[in-house]
Simulated scan of single mutants.
Amino acid sequence: MSLRPFRPQRAAAVAVLLAIALAAAAAPAHAEGSLRVAQQFGIAYLILDVVKDQKLVEKHGKEAGLDIKVEWAQISGASAMNEALLAGALDMVSAGVPPALVLWDRTRGKQNVKLVAALGSLPNYLLSNNPAVKTLDDFSAKDRIAVPAAGVGFQSRTLQIEAAKRYGKDNFKRFDDISISLPHPDATTALISGGLEVNAHFSSAPFYYQALARNPAVHKVISSYEILGGPATFNVLYTTQKFHDANPKTYKAFYAALAEAAAWIPAHKEEAAAIFIRQQSSKLPPDFVRKIIDDPENQFTVSPQQTQVYADKLHEIGVLQARAASWKEYFFEAAHANPGS
């Protein structure tokens, strides 16, 4: 198994994307039939990999009498996603539930960002290669926890919820000072190699599977499921009210494509593994990817699960100003037909 390093050109690509975003801030919205989507790295984005590979958005667009051109981008971190969405460089972005909720909260009455669909319920594991760290209480100022977006991303917000529970609401940022921003591939490489500044990583699949398999010193400290009290949505898609309202046919075709991909994966796991490897240029063995897809902890579904827990807890610690009465308040109505929480 080999890891894909975060090459300098990827960082450059993000910079270019954001430059385009700033230039596009005053540009008119795309007309129906045009969609720009961004995803991050890892098998948590398998639904999008299938949608892209099988051209499902184009398929559902044609069924509605619309030719849809889809542009795909792959970048790391919620901060870059949010900046590009608000600047108009992307129409649909993906990140963890907490950063999506923060953007919903901060754009109420303005861009009115809302969530489109879940991308699955998959745990994140907080890993460490430091033998002295068995629980969260064991982390010290000398440790460094790698996360994709320190302080603001899914992993940091999840740690903030747990820190508030353990150490009191005033100490919810306890782990922010020892967290650093690093894409999952780089963080995994650092954790496996050992002897580096980064000795912990709040990791998503397939990366925590790799780290646990390749370095016997790497161990799980806690998982997001343990913090949230059970299976919960990891990543979601979200967009602005402007794009949603101006592109009803494109939006409907995209949502239908997501739902089809989610229904297709459980019945075609071997093909889904091949699609992940192909779309993300992964060098992981097919049987290793299939093992991840087979893991009962991982559910590829568009139905949100326990997002309300994030909404409530982040409001309690002051990250969110608005209190959502229901998950339907921050999801667009197309998602309301499915079960959710």
Rank of each mutant, 00 (worst) to 15 (best):
Met1Trp: 04
Pro5Tyr: 08
Phe6Leu: 04
Phe6Lys: 01
Pro8Met: 01
Arg10Leu: 15
Arg10Pro: 00
Ala15Asp: 14
Ala15Met: 05
Leu17Arg: 11
Leu18Gln: 12
Ala19Glu: 14
Ala25Phe: 12
Ala27Lys: 14
Ala29Thr: 07
Gln39Ala: 08
Ile43Glu: 03
Tyr45Leu: 12
Leu46Cys: 03
Leu46Arg: 06
Ile47His: 01
Lys52Thr: 10
Gln54Pro: 04
Lys55Trp: 10
Glu58Gln: 15
Lys59Met: 13
Gly61Asp: 02
Ala64Thr: 07
Ala64Arg: 14
Lys69Ile: 11
Val70Cys: 07
Glu71His: 11
Glu71Arg: 07
Trp72Ala: 05
Ser76Trp: 11
Met81Gly: 04
Met81Ile: 01
Asn82His: 11
Leu86Met: 11
Ala87Asp: 10
Ser94Cys: 15
Gly96Thr: 03
Val97Ala: 03
Pro98Thr: 06
Pro98Phe: 03
Ala100Gly: 15
Val102His: 08
Val102Phe: 07
Leu103Ile: 13
Arg108Val: 09
Lys110Pro: 00
Gln111Leu: 09
Val113Gln: 05
Leu115Cys: 07
Val116Pro: 06
Ala118Ser: 15
Leu122Asn: 07
Asn124Glu: 14
Tyr125Trp: 09
Leu126His: 10
Ser128Glu: 02
Asn130Leu: 02
Asn130Gln: 05
Leu136Phe: 03
Asp138Tyr: 02
Ala141Trp: 01
Pro148Gln: 14
Gln155His: 10
Ser156Asp: 05
Leu159Pro: 03
Arg166Gly: 03
Gly168Ile: 05
Lys169Leu: 09
Lys169Ala: 10
Asp170Trp: 02
Asp170Asn: 11
Phe175Glu: 10
Ser179Trp: 04
Leu182Val: 14
Leu182His: 00
Pro183Tyr: 02
His184Trp: 12
Pro185Met: 08
Pro185Asn: 07
Thr189Cys: 00
Ala190Ile: 00
Val198Ile: 15
Ser203Gln: 11
Phe207Ala: 00
Tyr209Phe: 08
Leu212Ala: 01
Leu212Thr: 02
His219Ala: 01
Val221Ile: 13
Ile222Lys: 01
Ile222Tyr: 06
Gly229Tyr: 04
Thr233Val: 05
Val236Trp: 07
Thr240Ile: 10
Asp245Met: 03
Lys249Cys: 02
Tyr255Trp: 13
Ala256Pro: 11
Ala259Gly: 03
Ala262Gln: 04
Trp264Gln: 05
Ile265Ser: 03
Glu270Gly: 04
Glu271Arg: 05
Ile275Met: 00
Ile275Phe: 06
Gln279Val: 15
Phe288Met: 13
Arg290Glu: 13
Lys291Gln: 09
Ile292His: 02
Asp294His: 14
Asp295Asn: 11
Glu297Thr: 06
Asn298Gln: 11
Gln299Asn: 08
Thr301Gly: 08
Thr301Lys: 05
Thr301Arg: 04
Ser303Val: 02
Gln306Lys: 15
Lys313Ser: 08
Lys313Ile: 01
His315Gln: 09
Gly318Pro: 09
Gln321Val: 12
Arg323Glu: 10
Ala324Met: 08
Ala324Leu: 13
Ala325Ser: 12
Ser326Ala: 08
Trp327Met: 04
Lys328Val: 10
Glu333Trp: 00
Glu333Tyr: 06
Ala337Lys: 15
Pro339Arg: 12
Pro339Glu: 08
Gly340Leu: 10
Ser341Gly: 13
